[in-house]
């Protein structure tokens, strides 16, 4: 009998703690599938962030390091510089990567550090219960923007791929999402390329994944996936923002 569904080798048997309908789980699976397909499980080291995915260290079968809030790119730099033959990735939320860790993010990109960053943009602080993130949309209601994000006093959302695309350092920047089958396939292609780039020594590769947080957005999982199409993609256009290979430059 043909196997139509199997768990990637690079995922442990632990039950994911993510809320029902949260897309963190899908992205975990994509990362694990890519690690399997590239045959790099034995030499990959992952860096977990502080955020809902803090326990990513329990979900991947590869060696894992838990970093302080926002510091994953610096920790990844240390791990990679210790042994450049290892494949080093970070998995970070938007509060982690674009707020407290912005400095580490930008400078690892500036250095063209040969690492892979999987960046989950869910426009909210999930783990701490739904506060405003640097990526929260104008007018978005959160626990700390109860009247909607007021751009006059709370500023504007950060578009990380566009921001980093101003730098010479990055090799590859792409924004994807996982809200339907087609988009999931695209996301996997992007994640695979971001790992392949590292194997090929091409340098800093970041994939931004527009992700859902039904719990803190106060929506059903289905509605949350639609909200990505309706609200997030218009502000955060999908596409390739840097590709040093020259292909797909959009």
């Amino acid at each position: 009998m043909a196997v139509v569904f199997d768990k990637p080798k690079s995922l442990t048997d632990n039950v994911l703690h993510y809320c029902p309908g949260c897309t963190h789980g899908i992205v975990h699976r994509l990362v694990a599938e890519v690690i399997d397909e590239l045959g790099i499980e034995g030499r990959t080291i992952g860096i977990a962030p502080v955020g809902c995915s803090v326990m990513a260290y329990d979900y991947f079968t590869v060696d894992m390091v838990e970093a302080a809030h926002g510091r994953a790119p610096a920790v990844a730099t240390g791990v990679k510089r210790s042994d450049p033959s290892k494949i080093v990735f970070t998995y970070q939320g938007d509060g982690d990567l674009a707020s407290i860790g912005m400095c580490e993010t930008v400078h690892s990109a500036v250095r063209g550090e040969n690492i892979t960053i999987i960046f989950i943009n869910n426009a909210i602080y999930g783990m701490t219960g739904g506060q405003m993130a640097p990526t929260s949309l104008p007018g978005q209601v959160t626990q700390t923007s109860p009247y909607g994000r007021n751009t006059e006093t709370q500023g504007f959302p950060i578009r990380v791929c566009e921001l980093l695309s101003e730098l010479d350092g990055p090799a590859y920047l792409e924004r994807v999402t996982v809200n339907n089958v087609k988009n999931v396939r695209n996301a996997k292609k992007a994640i695979k390329k971001a790992f392949q780039n590292q194997i090929d020594g091409k340098g800093f590769s970041l994939v931004e994944v527009l992700s859902s947080c039904p719990t803190n957005w106060g929506m059903t999982p289905q509605k949350a996936l639609e909200w990505i199409d309706e609200k997030m993609i218009p502000y955060y256009p999908l596409g390739v923002y840097r590709d040093k290979d020259g292909e797909n430059n959009g």
Partner: peptide, 17 residues
């Protein structure tokens, strides 16, 4: 490093290996 914070976290990364 870009800051002392980054430097100590790079140390943390190497130490982890």
């Amino acid at each position: 490093a870009e800051s002392e914070i980054a430097a100590i976290n790079m140390v943390y990364g190497v130490a982890a290996t």
